[in-house]
Design a protein around this nucleic acid. Sequence first.
DNA 1: CAATTTACGTCAGGAGTGTTGACATAAAAA
DNA 2: TTTTTATGTCAACACTCCTGACGTAAATTG
Lengths: 183, 183
Amino acid sequence: MADFSSPSLRRAPPRGDDRLFLTERKLRQGAELMFFAYRDFTEDADKLLTGRDYGRAHHRTLHFIGRQPGISVAGLLEILAITKQSLARVLKPLIADGLVRSETGADDRRKRLLYLTEEGRAFEGQLSLAQRERLTNAFREAGPEAVEGFRRVMALMIDSDRRDDILDFVYSNADAGNVETKE
Amino acid sequence: MADFSSPSLRRAPPRGDDRLFLTERKLRQGAELMFFAYRDFTEDADKLLTGRDYGRAHHRTLHFIGRQPGISVAGLLEILAITKQSLARVLKPLIADGLVRSETGADDRRKRLLYLTEEGRAFEGQLSLAQRERLTNAFREAGPEAVEGFRRVMALMIDSDRRDDILDFVYSNADAGNVETKE
DNA sequence: CAATTTACGTCAGGAGTGTTGACATAAAAA
DNA sequence: TTTTTATGTCAACACTCCTGACGTAAATTG
């Protein structure tokens, strides 16, 4: 926000007006960039999904299971922030199609621990490859400093009350190798 | 993509592995940031929409009509990149509810020129205010350099073949004041 | 001027995602 | 033993997007 109480802004109408105008514009531009960039960002994976009876929700589910093998249904629900009914509609076919394996928890037999199967890992790899290529190109062309700025702004876009939790998750190692940690 | 044939990566396992790991990680982190940030970015406006029989598509439609008063249906379709059937379902209620006004083109009477009504502008203002506040906070806390990096990365995320057109649009002035330029 | 193209509207059907409400079961916890 | 927790599931509804098909008015073209 511009500081309207600033004397320099008050006594210089054209300069002040211009600054305010630029600020408003930049915010609108930022919002539009979010829209256009996100639309194309998801485009590649979406194409791989269509025709398979799968959608973006299936991709996200595969991604987060691959990210944290052995994650429980509740854990997945918390990250995705959807209802269990919504998750069930996505998870059921993934299990039926052999992309995800559900296992009864060892210590807590109520829990269902989720893992990608060999086939699931392969498909998830295909999906993320598309996005990774786009990100790679963007990051490389933009340069390290721009990427750092991107990360900062994106992090600050997240709801402040859950930001720390989300960032802890994003920047945690977990199981980045997507290894099916069975036992 | 990492070059696995690179000698430096081959003869320095820990260092090379680490570099590759960090790169892969950063890409995954970037993808997750896109997901989490976009989800929360749209959250505020979504809340204002629910219960009104309106959705995100209505918001986008209002936004781009407000951005370019007098835009034709075809112009809107090109920006939104959806089918005319999809747009019709959104546009019809907006017109019926008096948020958007459709006018026959003066020079080309086949065209329908779209404008926000007083009420439409008010509602669009409410919607964009929510997003603007989130962006304002993020931009202010991140700092100007980070914002510049954000803009660069986001721009590079857009499909390269339409990137220039999109950026021309985003960074054009058009009618940023949302004035209903009737005549 | 007749034929074609353009801009738009619309009916019909289908897929995917997300929601709320309600009910059921097995297992852990109190 | 009672309650709570983790999960599954049936049903219904809202929003968004798509493809295919048909229709109309107006501009353009030969």
